[in-house]
């Protein structure tokens, strides 16, 4: 497996709406004592009010999922969801910045934008996971993560409902770890127990 995963301080996860079952599985299987914060970016429709944060919160009584406000500080043991219709960026002081600029690859929030910005701040202390999805969002982001010394993981395209997104990563990202959903769950659990 790529990289030495003892010092991960942030996990980012990206996927399209179809990745929800895998995201739910990941959240449910997190150890109750997990420390490393998680930032989730899921593509959603723009002007339809979204129940996503409710769905995620109902999935797990013990862990609260937060749609952060602008300039909120990233906290240990927190799970964050990129708010609908904004890009989610991370500042050097580990606060969030929201951004309402143009969609990237028809997506806002864009997985690339969050992964790239997280990679600049967390460098080798970042693990980024790309799940099922229908375009090529996330590929550039994972490349940046690798370039800056972090760990890049993609869902095995053969297990993905919409394989285009992880497939694009498999074709273009060097040093990519490819895992089934079960593999991703185990991998993150291992990161969590080795983490801070």
């Amino acid at each position: 497996m790529a990289g030495n995963n003892t010092n991960i301080e942030l996990i980012t996860i990206g996927g399209s709406a179809g990745s929800l079952p895998v995201v739910l599985k990941i959240i449910k299987s997190l150890p109750a004592s997990f420390k490393v914060p998680i930032v989730i970016v899921i593509h959603r429709q723009r002007n339809v009010s979204s129940e996503l944060v409710k769905i995620l919160n109902n999935s797990s009584a013990s862990k609260k999922i937060i749609e952060p406000d602008d300039k909120e500080t990233i906290g240990d043991s927190c799970i964050y969801l990129a708010p609908q219709n904004y890009h989610l960026l991370i500042e050097k002081d580990r606060t969030f910045s929201l951004d309402y600029s143009e969609a990237v690859l028809f997506s806002r929030p864009s997985i690339d934008v969050t992964f790239e910005s997280a990679a600049r701040v967390y460098k080798k202390k970042l693990a980024a996971v790309l799940l099922t999805g229908a375009n090529s969002d996330g590929t550039t982001g994972l490349s940046t993560v690798v370039h800056r010394g972090g760990i890049a993981v993609a869902q095995d395209p053969s297990t993905a409902e919409y394989p285009a997104m992880p497939l694009s990563a498999v074709r273009n990202v060097k040093e990519l770890t490819v895992l089934s959903p079960e593999g991703i769950v185990k991998f993150l659990a291992a990161l969590m127990s080795n983490g801070k």
Binding site: L89, E91, S97, D99, S101
Partner: peptide, 9 residues
């Protein structure tokens, strides 16, 4: 200005 956003733009 927000650094992350400025850097990106």
């Amino acid at each position: 200005y927000s650094r992350a956003s400025m850097q990106r733009r």
